[in-house]
């Protein structure tokens, strides 16, 4: 595999990052991205996407929900209320 287009590179990006593409494909992808400013920018934003969404959706459990969960589970088990 020698000529890689941006589109082919995008299609193979996840497999490349997970190390499951053949060596010749990996070499072709790295060669393309290193010489393509568009793909370099695309890869940077592709890699940033999970981090940005992870940070933005990391909800903390409210204390009142912790209490109600404990009460719910004890009721389901038939424990004496405390």
């Amino acid at each position: 595999m020698t000529d890689v287009s941006c589109q082919t590179g995008v299609e193979l990006l996840m497999d490349y990052l997970e190390g499951v593409v053949p060596d010749d494909v990996r070499t072709s992808l790295e060669s393309h991205v290193s010489g393509c400013s568009k793909c370099s920018a695309f890869v940077a934003s592709y890699l940033a996407t999970p981090r940005i969404l992870r940070d933005a959706t990391a909800a903390a459990m409210p204390p009142e929900l912790q209490r109600s969960l404990r009460a719910f589970l004890r009721a389901q088990r038939g424990d004496d209320p405390q």
């Binding site: 287009s5 941006c6 589109q7 082919t8 995008v10 400013s37 695309f42 934003s45 940033a48 996407t49």
Partner: peptide
């Protein structure tokens, strides 16, 4: 992508999502 399989956007446009936060 265009007909040649190249990104349609500029590098600056393609980089933008990385700065969303």
């Amino acid at each position: 992508f265009d007909a040649m399989g190249r990104h349609c956007q500029t590098p600056a446009e393609l980089q933008v999502p990385a700065r969303a936060d």
